[in-house]
């Protein structure tokens, strides 16, 4: 068994695939930089991310697959499900070994797993386009900023930032992924990936009040009242609500927060 250690980026993974073919590595286990220490047994292969190698792999795949299938491999990477890298590798090996385009061979596990993982990521990206809730900061220190915090299961920020850029072209905004500790910031011109140090005290009501625009609380309150007013009690169906809006997302939904948690 060979541990293939790469830097955790998509380019790094593509480079790893190049190396796997180059050195004819068999029976591999992927490990990202920091987890690498855990693999004490077996041989170890260090991958140095190289644009040239990554591009070669991509080009080879482009000759065999449609752009949708290529995208699906990338989405599987973002899914962060268990063994996602192995699922990707199995599919890539199958694609390279076949003379025809195999991406529609859905009855085959090797193809199906990538398809499923990609579907899962698309679904969550769509959900995040819906469930982001911006709050407006005060404008006395900096220019006003609409900020939101999310904790999605998959790494969907790269997939949704264009949507928000097109939609909120005239406001500064920041969406921060607390789970992965990075955010996307739009400065009215372009998108920037940022790392922000959030104070531990951010949760406290006092800090929030100092941070937020004076009308912010009013609109949050209006939204919650609206949310309550459009419900039809005679049709109550909590199961249906939960199906569309699983509880794991409620933490950052203004309308689902307990009152004291809001600004």
């Amino acid at each position: 068994m060979t541990s293939v250690v790469y830097d955790g980026t998509y380019e790094g993974w593509l480079t790893a695939v190049f190396d796997i073919y180059e050195y004819k590595l068999d029976d591999v286990v992927f490990a990202k930089g920091e987890q690498a220490a855990a693999f004490l047994f077996g041989t170890r292969h260090e991958v140095t991310t190289e644009d040239r190698k990554a591009k070669r792999v991509l080009k080879g795949l482009q000759q065999r697959l449609s752009s949708t299938a290529l995208k699906n491999i990338n989405l599987t990477f973002l899914s962060e499900i268990d063994y996602s890298e192995d699922i990707m590798l199995r599919f890539v090996r199958y694609a390279f070994s076949s003379g025809v385009n195999v991406e529609q061979d859905l009855a085959n596990r090797l193809v199906w797993e990538v398809w499923e993982a990609a579907r899962r990521v698309r679904k969550e990206a769509h959900r995040m386009e819906a469930f982001v809730r911006f709050k407006l900061t005060k404008d006395d220190l900096y220019d006003p900023l609409y900020y939101a915090v999310i904790e999605p299961q998959c790494d969907v920020l790269p997939l949704i930032s264009d949507h928000f850029k097109n939609r909120y072209a005239d406001q500064r905004w920041l969406i921060y992924d607390l789970k992965r500790k990075y955010g996307i910031y739009y400065d009215l011109e372009m998108l920037n990936t940022v790392e922000v140090q959030f104070s531990d005290k951010l949760g406290s009501a006092q800090i929030k009040a100092e941070l937020c625009d004076e009308r912010e609380e009013h609109f949050q309150n209006l939204w919650c009242r609206y949310f309550g007013a459009v419900n039809i009690e005679a049709r109550k169906n909590l199961r249906l609500q939960m199906k569309h809006m699983p509880k794991r997302y409620w933490k950052y939904l203004t309308e689902k927060m307990p009152d004291y948690h809001r600004s």
Partner: peptide
Amino acid sequence: LGDSKANGICHSFTEDG
């Protein structure tokens, strides 16, 4: 401000689902 693309988005779901 705003951009409405072809697929709609459901932003929330009330207790009636």
